[in-house]
């Protein structure tokens, strides 16, 4: 432990000076002000994967890494749909997930919005199959779509911003 701290004090701060480009910084700033205006500085999102390949989830997780750190701007991924403003759905809707997706949507308090994440949600990525119950919009009222396969973290931020501006 002592060895570590000796080394630690003699080395640099490990997370400083991350290269964040201007465009992203502007996006984040705008996102923050939009959330402050329209969601009292706190936008709660419940993410549901109804049949993705997990890349969309990985990119969503990447939103909380030090490059993006979305929590700072008031975006929270919450554990229960009952705490959420937005249901963020990724992936095609599989037959096995359909009842659970509808159930999760029911649990969201109104007013509520559905945002789809990634092109699977439109059924544009994989061929159709017997086990796929169609795109998300066939089952839920979709307020906004964030395109990409998967959308990169900055594309997700831009997508959320576009959604907020529409409101």
């Amino acid at each position: 432990m002592i060895r570590f701290w000796q080394k630690r004090f003699s080395s640099d701060i490990k997370t400083k000076n991350l290269a964040i480009d201007k465009e992203l910084a502007t996006l984040k700033k705008e996102l923050k002000s939009e959330i402050a205006k329209k969601f009292a500085s706190s936008l709660a999102i419940r993410m549901v994967d109804s049949g993705s390949c997990n890349a969309c989830e990985a990119e969503c997780n990447a939103l909380s890494n030090p490059y993006y750190d979305l929590e700072r701007f008031g975006v929270h991924f919450v554990a229960s749909p009952r705490h959420a403003d937005v249901l963020l759905v990724s992936g095609v809707v599989t037959l096995n997930m359909l009842p659970h997706l509808l159930d999760a949507y029911e649990q969201l308090p109104s007013p509520k919005w559905v945002i789809t994440l990634g092109d699977c949600a439109l059924c544009h990525t994989l061929p159709d199959s017997f086990a796929i119950a169609g795109p998300v919009s066939a089952h839920l009222p979709v307020a906004h779509h964030i395109p990409g396969c998967p959308p990169a973290p900055d594309a997700i931020i831009a997508g959320l911003l576009a959604f907020l501006r529409k409101l």
């Binding site: 993705s52 992936g91 095609v92 599989t94 037959l95 096995n96 659970h100 990525t125 061929p127 796929i132």
Partner: peptide
């Protein structure tokens, strides 16, 4: 829960077209 029927999706396709499915 995420059973998408990938195996059936592949059937009847040109083998080289399979890449677009297996990568996802």
């Amino acid at each position: 829960y995420k059973y998408r029927g990938i195996e059936k999706m592949m059937e009847g396709r040109d083998p080289a077209d399979g890449f677009a499915i297996v990568e996802k």
